[in-house]
Design a protein around this nucleic acid. Structure first.
Length: 418
RNA sequence: GUGAGUGUAGCGCAAUUGGUUAGAGCUUCGGAUUGUGGUUCCGGCGGUUGAGGGUUCAAGUCCCUUCACUCACCCCA
């Protein structure tokens, strides 16, 4: 029988890599704390409706990428394809934003989308997610964008590009949408096949098309900034002013539309040239209509999602620092089988004192044990002589020096020496 | 969902125009005069060449099918 493999688009994060992931998450976690965001833990599956209504029926995610199944109670359940809808659901359900209260929340974990895997794209992928709920003003947008930039700054990512846009609100977007439909309708013969269907369902997405012919048509399309209502214009200029005040450089991209329906006003992405075709390490924006789309009271929100898998790729590519790989500090070697018991006792004693230590449990020879100890700071050696005198020989593996001391002094000696 | 490329030991690779028993390196394990690691030397383990079928006297090598991986389209983190 053939061995079972991990499903396509999933992978194991092995010990050689996992500590680097911890470093990224710890760095993000500390940054979140510094920005006043609290961690929230959410379910990994939700009612399918949350996403079909929240993310949008016409989006690619809902139309063809969700892992949806019926549970044993006959409910339609979906593995979360993104985090924002779940955060909003939790805020509504737990009354986090009633009576004018706001909430700054972050979380990280796996997301699921059924797509063909490629560089930087997996079916189970990991995101760090931050959401600021209950604040309509541009200050929140600036806080979110600066937070994502600061995480990358701390991680040491280089050559990032921040791209921003405004996609309007429920008042002005329909007006712009209508203008676009009229414009593209008169250039139908120059559009690709998928854009012809977009014309019906989601004309904004044509702006995003990479087909050269569509691109040329889009170049002449009406400018969204001419259609923005006064409130959206004002909001957008405040966001830009806020970013400039903090000294950030960014580029404007009228074509930045994003594939999720819930975005209003601000949309932004952070791109890295170190990746392949999937070059966004983070993306987000404002979503003032999401709460009502999923059946709650009106709660404005702004947030971002950061692709951990891609951050990892960029950091490896750019040789970023991950700190030190955790390792065992002390190895307790038993010279013969009679000493194994004493070695276990000393190892546990060290561990109780929070000294990372290990001893052999696989029946390895003394020589093999010393080989392993070579990767540690100290080797504690126990043989017949040590047992007879209730002592332990402690060798500093970095300089080769060795002492024989009373067993009861071992912990203190090691703590004092390092 | 579409296209292209790649599958040989745990890992990264080699094997003439199809030609004997598929090879080194790294890793791992063991040893180098009975209690001491990293370097060095010696040795062992390790492969149904992704799987299945076909052509041939002969297939890792050629053909078909299938699976997996990779990259790209699409879309997005």
């Amino acid at each position: 029988m053939a061995a079972i493999s991990a499903p396509r688009g999933t992978r194991d994060i092995l010990p050689a890599e996992s500590w680097k992931w911890s470093y990224i998450i710890n760095t993000a976690s500390q940054t979140m704390r510094d920005f006043g965001f609290s961690e929230i833990h959410l379910p990994i599956f939700e009612h399918t409706e949350l996403f079909s209504r929240g993310v949008g029926e016409t989006t690619d995610i809902v139309e063809k990428e969700m892992y949806t199944f019926e549970d044993r109670g006959g409910r339609s359940i979906t593995l979360r394809p993104e985090a924002t809808a779940g955060v909003m659901r939790a805020a509504i359900e737990n009354n986090l934003c009633v009576q004018g209260a706001s909430a700054k929340l972050w979380n990280w974990g796996p997301m699921f989308r059924h797509e063909r895997p490629q560089k930087g794209r997996y079916r189970q992928f990991y995101q760090i997610d931050a959401e600021c709920l209950g604040i309509a003003g541009a200050g929140a947008d600036v806080e979110i964008i600066s937070l994502s930039i600061e995480i990358f700054r701390r991680l040491g990512l280089k050559n990032l590009e921040v791209v921003i846009n405004s996609v309007g609100c429920e008042k002005c977007r329909p007006v712009y949408r209508q203008k676009l439909i009229e414009y593209f309708d008169s250039h139908k013969d120059e559009l690709c096949e998928t854009c012809l269907t977009r014309l019906e369902r989601n004309p904004l997405r044509i702006l995003d098309c990479k087909n050269p012919s569509c691109g040329r048509v889009a170049d002449g399309a009406p400018d969204i900034y001419d259609s923005l209502c006064d409130e959206c214009k004002e909001h957008f200029s405040e966001v830009r002013a806020g970013l400039e005040r903090l000294g950030f450089t960014y580029t404007l991209n009228k074509r930045l539309v994003r594939g999720l329906d819930y975005y209003t006003k601000t949309a932004y992405e952070i791109l890295s040239g170190a990746l392949g075709a999937q070059n966004a390490v983070a993306g987000g924006g404002r979503y003032d209509n999401l709460s009502s789309a999923v059946g709650g009271a009106k709660i404005p929100g702004v947030g971002f999602a950061c692709g951990l898998d891609r951050v990892m790729l960029v950091m490896e590519e750019q040789g970023c620092d991950f700190g030190e790989m955790p390792k065992t500090d002390v190895y307790v070697a038993a010279l013969d089988d009679d000493a194994r018991g004493a070695a276990q006792i000393l190892t546990y004693e060290l561990r109780k004192n929070k000294i990372a230590s290990a001893c052999d449990t696989a029946g390895k020879s003394f020589k093999a044990q010393m080989k392993i100890a070579g990767a540690c700071k100290f080797a504690c050696i126990i043989g017949a002589d040590e047992i007879a005198n209730n002592t332990v020989s402690i060798k500093d593996m970095r300089d080769g020096s060795q002492v024989n001391i009373s067993m009861s002094d071992a912990v203190e000696y090691i703590l004092g020496r390092d």
